[in-house]
């Protein structure tokens, strides 16, 4: 069985590193893995999406409607935007941090009130204040490792050491300890 993870967020939040970290761990575990990223325009504060798929044999690198076992959302309404990608029995792991898009800041669009609560009525939601945990670990930039920590609880086939090993390999040495701390704080939530 192929499992699908969709990572959504705002350009600049570190979603790309998150998918690469998850991919790295899954390859070490011996899975066939595909990741898909879109570069370019999406980096400048736009909505960004990456996919991670793994199993015995993976064909398509993209996650499509109703296929995601997990959506890992770095921002409160991004999960809502991509909700139709989630499997009926899938889980949305979401950061409760709200980042207003330019359409809300200067345009007429409005930001939905209490998106996380509304989402909880529509699917299985695990909500965390990843920004607070990242700050506690030492940097707001560690939101991505906090969320990976939360996700790790849903992937029992992978033990903690494999995750920490991947952080050591992929994160700049200077930031390894901080990110390990952030990961553990997410995992222990």
């Amino acid at each position: 069985m192929t499992k699908s993870i969709m990572i959504v967020g705002v350009g600049g939040q570190g979603t790309l590193l998150a998918s690469r970290l998850i991919g790295h761990v899954l390859v070490e575990k011996g899975f066939d893995v595909k990741l898909s990223e879109v570069h370019g325009m999406s980096q400048r504060g736009g909505s960004v999406v990456t996919y991670v798929k793994y199993g015995e044999k993976v064909y398509s690198p993209i996650v499509d409607k109703g296929e995601a076992d997990f959506i890992l959302s770095f921002e409160a309404v991004e999960g809502a935007r991509y909700l139709e990608m989630l499997k009926k029995d899938g889980t949305l792991i979401t950061n409760t941090q709200e980042i207003y898009p330019i359409t809300v800041i200067t345009g007429g669009a409005s930001y939905p009130a209490e998106p996380t609560q509304k989402l909880s009525k529509l699917c299985d939601v695990k909500a965390v204040d990843a920004l607070a945990l990242a700050r506690a670990a030492g940097s707001e930039k560690a939101v991505n490792t906090v969320l990976i920590g939360v996700l790790s609880n849903y992937l029992p086939e992978i033990e903690q050491d494999a995750w920490l090993g991947a952080i050591e390999k992929l994160v700049k040495p200077k930031f390894v300890e901080l990110n390990k701390k952030a990961f553990v704080s997410g995992r222990e939530i």
């Binding site: 504060g45 909505s47 139709e84 509304k118 989402l119």
Partner: peptide, 20 residues
Amino acid sequence: KAKEVSRFGEPVPGRPPVMC
């Protein structure tokens, strides 16, 4: 047949890229 999906049911504001 299309897979069954949930929808948020409320408009989600667009998030286009912006100048940094």
